[in-house]
Amino acid sequence: MNIEEYKDVWVFIEQRDGQIIDVGLELLGAGRDLADKLEVNLCGVLLGNGVKDSASDLFSYGADKVYVIDDPVLEKYRTETYMKAVGDLVRKYKPEIFLYGATSNGKDLASAVATEVMTGLTADTTLLDVNLEKRLFEASRPAFGGNIMATILCKKHRPQMATVRPKVMKKPEPEEGREGKIIEEKITLKEEDLRTKVLEIVRDAKKAVNLEEADVIVAAGKGIKDEKGFNMVKELAEVLNATVGASRDVVEAGLCGHDHQVGQTGLTVTPKIYFAIGISGAVQHVVGMQNSDMIIAINNDPEAAIFNAAHYGIVADAFQIVPMLTEEFRKALKGEEAGGVTANV
């Protein structure tokens, strides 16, 4: 492998039902910085059926080029088709860095492509940079249960690949009028030769929890101890019309489902206000909520790491202060309800 031949930063642009989803745009923002530092092009990779027209939208988010394969066999994501298509593109155009959103399909694809083209892949990265001196991609992620950050390097193989979870990077503001080049490619696979088939996609519209879109999250950590403590947190959330989040310990203790889990192995959230109650602040949790607009931490340990991540901190016994907060908020917000703002509990 001649590493010198590999240029450009690529971003896999995932679409669902023909609509480009945000994570790809977020990664164009992150990829732009890397491409500028390396003085190379930033390229999007867009696969699907009838997606060609969306390709030009990517220029305003920072892409210089977009590789498009538009074919009926690519309508729904399947590992075998996407892996082949992306693998062919990589072999032909030789990118230096390749980023994927760490969604179900993004992770699946990246893993398959890494083996297809025999290169290194770092999962769930939270920090991306380049070492210009050595011209190396530095992909960092929390490691070992989430208490340390590790930088992973891929020295002798290209492309250097990483997945990044949704919402970890900020979606850039579109720059209207920005232009670029669309490069169309073909896929050689035929439907009748394929071994897998997506029969049905069921999206659960009335999902009980949707942390990712919540404006206010009240999250519980292992400091809340048991079900009683968890109910106390739930009560505060109810009064605030907030969604309940939880750290890994709380989920593993069985106090709530995995749908509520915030962090490296759960969801990444960016609410307007995030209450962290009895959460110690292990990196593995913090990476999932650090981009919230306002973080308020309540913990009885003044040394708790969560206070480094928070905007406001209260050192107090949650079992004392949370019920007080609930009561005071209830009083304060009661007037509003009467004033016409509808609560939806």
Binding site: A208, D215, V216, T243, I273, A343
Partner: peptide, 8 residues
């Protein structure tokens, strides 16, 4: 923010 439930 506390008026309308964001996520649920």
């Amino acid at each position: 923010l506390f008026g309308v439930k964001g996520g649920e």
